[in-house]
């Protein structure tokens, strides 16, 4: 028997003569034995064997297909559309047209920096979806986040805050959040240390102006 056979026996929970002797002389198998016994208990756990509904994959394919199609159509007409609207509006909306849906956003607002070292404004637009809100942020004013940090966009309301996701560099960012802006009217961008803490840090860098 080689090491994989011994490990398979541990995982299988089989009493095999000679296993203890092998563990006594094989550092690698000894190191893995505890994990394998733990994994063996997971295999017996009913929760591990829960199956999603059979149509979930199709629903995900449909959802992503719906989202990809306008993305392709949009490329061919975005340039024309950008010329049709006024020059100033075109700048603000371009990111929305390029990244977002071809449809008008359900809402759009300006975000201002709370740090004096950052100048300018950012634009954020949102589309209400079945699962929450899709957000496109044009944050070209933000420098790249320092190596051990990331930016995070939050929806905040009376009930607390919900993360829409993280991004490293400024520019155009598309994110999704599982709530509606109606319930979480304030939008924040924070700078988050990569410390694994899922709560927002105090380092707010952008804040929406209309709520």
């Amino acid at each position: 028997m080689n090491c994989t056979d011994w490990r398979a026996a541990i995982l299988e929970g089989r009493e095999v003569p000679g296993l203890e002797a092998h563990l006594a002389r094989c550092v690698e198998c000894r190191r893995l034995a505890g994990d394998l016994r733990t994994f063996s208990t997971y295999l017996a756990d009913a929760a591990l064997w829960e199956e999603p509904p059979p149509d979930l994959c199709d629903r995900i394919v449909c959802m992503l297909d719906d989202r990809s199609q306008p993305r392709l159509r949009r490329r061919s007409r975005s340039r024309l559309a950008a010329w049709v609207v006024g020059a100033a509006a075109a700048v603000a909306l371009f990111a929305v047209w390029v990244l977002g849906d071809a449809s008008e956003p359900d809402w759009q607002t300006t975000m201002v920096p709370t740090e004096s070292t950052i100048t300018g404004t950012a634009t954020v637009a949102g589309w209400n979806t079945e699962v929450g809100t899709r957000v496109v942020l044009d944050a070209t004013l933000l420098p790249s986040a320092p190596g051990d940090h990331t930016y995070e966009l939050w929806f905040a309301g009376e009930d607390g805050v919900v993360s829409a996701g993280t991004f490293r560099a400024g520019g155009d960012v598309e994110l999704t959040v599982g709530v509606a802006r109606r319930d979480y009217p304030t939008i924040l961008v924070t700078l988050e240390p990569l410390d694994g803490d899922p709560a927002p840090s105090d380092l707010v860098v952008l804040r929406s102006t209309d709520a």
Binding site: P52, P53, L56, I60, M63, L64, R67, F167, E174, T176
Partner: peptide, 21 residues
């Protein structure tokens, strides 16, 4: 289960949006 379905869909959506970044 229905929340878990929602979470699975949302996970794929977020992954898809972030996949090229």
């Amino acid at each position: 289960r229905s929340l878990a379905e929602e979470a699975t869909q949302l996970t794929f959506l977020k992954a898809w949006q972030a996949a090229d970044r």
